[in-house]
């Protein structure tokens, strides 16, 4: 069954078209990279998926729920890590997670069980008493991922989640989210960094608001590299895209 289905999505900021007739289907248990240059429409697409923006052009289904008609049910199936960090820095790791659980309407033993499981998955159980402010960038990101999983979503959205992190932290986080996909979650990962994508991952190439390609990374790369294939599709010298 498709976990995330977008059909003919378009969005405009005034006269400027940000997304133009975007359609694709993503399956459970997959890691899918949304690859695009800055300004390609990735953040707009994420805002539509999280209902920070809405459009009347096209439909989005999350785990079978129409986001426009059943927003609560659909949002309940989504965990989000935004590009911008959204932690309460004066709260501890555990307090942050409990606060978020409460915003989702969760408390008590079930919430605590989910929090503990999320912390274990990301190896942060021993740091749960530390203030978020005291964590480095990589651990803050891990904590945000742990937080996004508390309500047991089926889809994890990450918008440029490794921006500003060093190489080791980036690798650790991409490895974590790949593991999450292997364990049955649909991970939808917006990025402009090609090296975060593995050969078996799905890739949606977004350029100037349009989907240029949707296939697994190995097929898109063909005999060359994914970066070369991406450059062929989007034009010369894509600034900010690295191998």
């Amino acid at each position: 069954m498709s976990t995330l289905r977008l059909e003919h999505i378009s969005y405009r900021y005034g006269a400027k078209t940000a997304l133009d007739n975007v359609s694709f289907v993503l399956e459970q248990g997959r890691f899918c990279a949304l690859l695009g240059l800055n300004g390609a429409g990735k953040s707009t697409l994420f805002s539509l998926l999280t209902r920070l923006l809405v459009t009347r052009e096209g439909t989005i289904h999350v785990a079978g729920h129409d986001l426009a008609r059943e927003p609560r049910a659909a949002l309940g199936k989504i965990g989000v890590v935004f590009q911008q960090q959204t932690l309460e820095l004066d709260l501890s790791v555990m307090q942050n997670l409990r606060y978020f659980a409460a915003l989702q309407g969760l408390s008590g033993r079930n919430a605590q069980r989910s929090i503990d499981a999320a912390l274990d998955r990301l190896g942060m159980r021993d740091r749960s008493g530390e203030k978020a402010r005291a964590l480095n960038g990589g651990h803050r990101r891990r904590m945000e991922i742990a937080r996004a999983l508390i309500h047991d979503p089926q889809v994890l959205l990450l918008d440029e989640a490794t921006v500003g992190l060093d190489t080791a932290a980036r690798q650790a986080i991409t490895a974590h989210v790949h593991d999450l996909a292997d364990n049955g979650l649909l991970v939808f990962w917006a990025t402009h960094l090609v090296d975060e994508i593995r050969a078996t991952d799905d890739v949606v190439v977004l350029h100037e608001g349009r989907v240029l390609a949707h296939d697994d990374a190995a097929t898109l790369a063909g005999d060359g590299s994914l970066l070369d294939a991406f450059i062929r599709m989007t034009g010369p010298a894509p600034e900010g895209v690295t191998a």
């Binding site: 999280t50 609560r72 935004f82 960090q85 959204t86 989702q104 309500h151």
Partner: peptide
């Protein structure tokens, strides 16, 4: 501006 409002706005509660 800091982004934490998004936590509220993307919650499954109304």
């Amino acid at each position: 501006e800091m982004g934490s409002m998004r936590l509220l706005l993307t919650s499954r509660l109304p």
